[in-house]
Design a protein around this nucleic acid. Sequence first.
RNA 1: GCGAGAGUGGCGGAAUUGGUAGACGCGCUGGUCUUAGGAACCAGUAUCAUUGAUGUGUGGGUUCGAGUCCCUCCUCUCGCACCA
Length: 828
Amino acid sequence: MSTQNTYASHYDFKQVESKWQQRWEVNNAYQASEDADKEKYYVLEMFPYPSGRIHMGHVRNYSIGDVVARYKRMRGFNVLHPMGWDAFGLPAENAAQKHNTHPAKWTYENIDYMRSQLKQLGLSYDWQREFATCDPDYYRWEQKIFIEMYERGLVYQRVTTVNWCETCQTVLANEQVIDGACWRCDELVEPRNMNGWFFKITHYTDELLDDLQALDGWPEKVVTMQNNWIGQSTGLTCDFKIEGSDEAISIFTTRPDTIFGVTFMSLAAEHPLLETLTQGTDREAEVADFINAIIKEKQRQSIQEEPEKKGMFTGRYCVNPFNGESVPIYVANFVLMEYGTGAVMAVPAHDQRDFEFARAYDLPIKPVVIPQGTTLDPEMMQEASTIPGTLVNSGQFSGLDSIAAQSKIINFAWKQGFGAPLTTYRLRDWGISRQRYWGAPIPMVHCQDCGVVPVPLEQLPVLLPEDPDTSSDECRPLSQRPDFVGTVCPACSKEARRETDTMDTFVESSWYFARFACPDSDDTPLDKDKSAYWLPVDQYIGGVEHAILHLLYSRFFTKVLRDLGYLSIAEPFTNLLTQGMVIKDGAKMSKSKGNVVDPDLLIRQYGADTVRLFSLFAAPPERDLEWNAQGVEGASRFLNRVYRLVKEFSNPYVVAPEPSAPEDTALQRKLHQTIKKVTYDIEDDFHFNTAISAVMELFNTLSSSLGSATRPGAAPDTVSGSIRTMLLLLYPMVPHFSSELWQMMGFADTPEEQVWPTYDDEKAKEELLTIVLQVNGKVRSRIEVDADVQDQQLRELALTDEKVLRFVDEKRVKKVIVVKKKLVNIVV
RNA sequence: GCGAGAGUGGCGGAAUUGGUAGACGCGCUGGUCUUAGGAACCAGUAUCAUUGAUGUGUGGGUUCGAGUCCCUCCUCUCGCACCA
């Protein structure tokens, strides 16, 4: 070290970052391949929709994933860290129409740009595995899976009600209907019955529910949300015979203990028995009008408001099988046909909705469950009583505890033959038909003679027609294209029509993580060996907004793919990290609020490492991150300080003739403490914010223990060793920076070729401890003692401490509490 | 309404198991160097009173000791929302 080196006074991130990015690119540095000798680690971030450019949420998400990937590589894992594009979807069609281009062109151009943005962030992806879901090489396999699901009865067609916009001539998704109107043209949407394709996710309801319990690597919140979504409830189903008819109304209740309190019956407007109930009676027209009115009203309802309870007597009665009482049958607007049986036994005394309805229509209220120490007077009740109690007016069950009575009542119904235990779910089958162009075509053919016939596997993929004249204003654009629609029946070779619906884009994202294990596999969707090696995903990272849909669908698909013989796992994601939003000025970034921060600008101004560092430092990953321009400045300043330290150190390092032994051990101690802390923080819960602050502390100690000609410091070897380790600890978060400074330190290799630093607990131990001395729980003094101090010594030191004595004064010492190596509390 | 989570300086946030509240960073204040500095470095920074008191949304409780545990209430965020 005889000559001064010539490093710039400021860290030149532009030159450094492009240098390392080029090197990683040329070397395919993060290419992964199966290696039976190494433990695999699959880390995945939710892939983006190629909307045009990445946003700060992506920056955060992918920075977190990259730290995990780089860290795990240094820990010796064989890491798979892929990236791709969730590339089908409506925005492409809208953009194509607006800019007079083709959805494919728009999408692939966006992908090219966004890929370059991700590369500028220095993310360590295996780019060899990249694919977009709109690649025919991807969706052809999805079509194959679809057909195999069809053959197993997991796919079916059903006529269902959709939101139709007459002006736009298209079907809208629920979220595209705002206050009952089309989001684009404000036309009121109307219900239309349409044939659509469904995935039988309900076939896996129990498994989806049961396996949730084993997902202990998932945030509880997400597990709870999925639990609620599946919505299991258990209870009794039983039949109420209709008077003057052979038919009966089936009800479902979770409160069989209240069944003696039934005073009327409520049916959904769509209930199939309604028509026959009023047929030929003088109420027929009136009831029919009412039904139409509430069905119409339902469609106009905004999702927010809860309408007033409305209903109408049908003129007919049914019989409560438990007590033979005759109860009037009503149609009611709050009963859902989709849930349970579409019929509700109404117990106004113990159900708030029934209560409101009874009050409005002057129906009797009959309490049958009396809570301990109360009485219930139907006249006086202000609301339904929903708490448990003792049964009254309940025949042979009177006197029983209401909870205990539930199973007895179900049993009784079962034995008598008019009821049975029943478990119902909220989860519905997944409607995947989209009447759009830019999606994966559903590989089916409609033949007049043979009905629905799958496209033969050897004819896959069913490609989207390439014509660029797509107009997204048409419903089912594919049906407008004779060249696409016209085909022959695979079974009988007669003329036939192709299915013109495309699949929901959530289908693509339900299995992409598996395809990353074998993106080039060209004879099967999933190579068994490769997916067996890489799957499941060890760590999945993404926004909590996908807690239900994407994550539930992926779990469903994993089970399907297992049953189709492709996978040997039941759950796709062992550990899940849901990161918070990036917000600014307390609000989510959005164009309308004008608080959007552009990653491109930031990277240009500060470099990728600074942006990464700040987004990791400003908050723990699961919390929302408040973006703060000055905070970014601070991150940049920190990196520059480290740069200058290394620069200075790699110059001839002047030390005092005798390094200071205390300084030296203090630095070593801090070093080992830092390794321990950073390792723990990353390993335990990805709390990079505290890991970074620990490295900052190490840096502060390091810069104050540099020796000079006039001041003794730590030994040069200790300093250089500490710098070296600090760079390794920083590497996963700021890889370009760390790699460059590693070379400045004179090493020929790179940090990523190093193993993660280890610590020595002995060296991390403090020699001196600060002991807090309290009197009556209040801190009165602090003393420094040797680390091996005994409790008895502490006690004596405390009782003779000058400051302590001032507060003990003449009072009697009642008790002395000694907490090992921490504090002494004197109670007077 | 139901369910979950969260309330700590001017700000973002720290605080393994109940044991020094406010780490680290931002901002701010003062200083050094500078023609200048929005650069860098040094010192300070919870609040109020100038030796002490008070402080983790509110009020209570348990404890020698509570940000941490229990109860009450308030506020915010998210999810579900007529689910029988």
